[in-house]
């Protein structure tokens, strides 16, 4: 350092500290901002809150008019969701009515005149959803990071055409391709299998994920890796140690987008699965009771269905804000 700079360090007054900051008012201002934010968030979340409440209402409370805001919570919806039931015969009803020592479950049976005869398929379907969506998300992100890096950094013959081809995979509406895929899958023995669904969702997610990640990786200056290359690292080591840590935001955003797609996907799941590999989305609307629509049960299913996505998004939230606004605020 030269005299001038060094001198600055010793100098008793630092010029850069002279900008005045005054006032205590920001406290009140931020409190008001907070309250407004809470009110807006509440309004936006009313449907979700309503769903959560309905999940804990009894079947009758769920359909009461006017709607009940205060109610006695029950797990009836969840019980219905996870069980198979049958109508009690008149004789059985009479039997229950005679007894005086009914516990709460038996009271419920009497009240609804239905009894549990076994497990429903919902738990299995939720598990299928977790496996299929989870695996396809992981595969999409891994493959997409690798190919996006290649597209971003290397001279590939026909690069632009390839990129367009990849994007075009996303252009066909699912409905159009379900039938051919259904026929193909039946031939290949992939119909109603986990692998089939993972494969399908992965390939469907890839096109979007590659494009999204390429944008992120393009933004990472290539000097970082070149510095590592010159410093004695191989291309792959440089990728792992230098590029990946900086692409975290993009990877997080891609993960969430892929997960949401795979998790919510309805059309393919409806056509290509029946029993073993059926996921939750096609089955939730089928939770219809015999005596009218069981809103509590549907709400319970929807709520459980929501939770995994909420958890993942919550874990990755730090990266997401930068991730999803990416492209909108690119620097110069």
């Amino acid at each position: 350092m030269m005299a001038n700079q060094t001198y600055q360090a010793q100098s008793p007054v630092n010029f850069s500290t002279r900008v005045d900051k005054v006032g205590r008012r920001p406290m009140i201002a931020s409190a008001i901002k907070g309250i407004v934010a809470i009110i807006i968030a509440f309004i936006m979340l009313i449907p979700v809150i309503w769903m959560g409440m309905t999940a804990f209402k009894s079947l009758s409370d769920a359909v009461s008019v006017p709607p009940k805001v205060f109610f006695t919570p029950t797990v009836e919806g969840f019980v219905n969701l996870f069980t198979q039931q049958r109508q009690l015969t008149d004789a059985e009803v009479a039997q229950y009515q005679e007894r005086t020592d009914l516990n709460w479950a038996e009271q419920l049976v009497l009240q609804r005149q239905k009894t549990i005869i076994g497990q429903s398929q919902f738990a299995g379907q939720l598990l299928n959803s977790l496996i299929i969506a989870g695996a396809s998300t992981i595969f999409s992100v891994i493959f997409a990071v690798l190919s996006a890096y290649a597209f971003s950094r290397f001279e590939i013959p026909g690069k632009d055409d390839l990129l367009f081809f990849i994007l075009s995979q996303r252009m066909l509406p699912a409905v159009v391709v379900t039938v051919p895929i259904f026929l193909m899958y039946r031939q290949l023995g992939l119909y109603d299998t986990h692998i089939g669904m993972i494969f399908l969702y992965t390939s469907f997610n890839l096109s979007f994920a590659v494009w999204l990640l390429k944008g992120f990786i393009d933004e990472i200056p290539k000097e970082y890796e070149e510095a590592a290359l010159v410093d004695g690292y191989t291309r792959l080591q440089a990728f792992r140690k230098v590029v990946l840590p900086q692409a975290v935001t993009g990877i997080a955003a891609t993960t969430v987008f892929s997960l949401i797609f795979s998790w919510n996907e309805y059309a393919f799941a409806l056509m290509l699965t029946s029993d073993r590999a059926r996921t939750a989305p096609p089955s939730i609307p089928l939770i219809l009771g015999t005596g009218g629509i069981e809103w509590s049960t549907i709400a319970a299913g929807s709520m459980l269905f929501l939770i995994p996505v909420v958890i993942v998004t919550f874990i990755l939230r730090k990266h997401l804000l930068r991730g999803v606004t990416f492209g909108a605020i690119r620097k110069g």
Partner: peptide
Amino acid sequence: NLFVARFIGSPGMNLIQ
């Protein structure tokens, strides 16, 4: 003042404590 002394000139003024 010191700021002007440093800022004007290339290099700026020599300033020694």
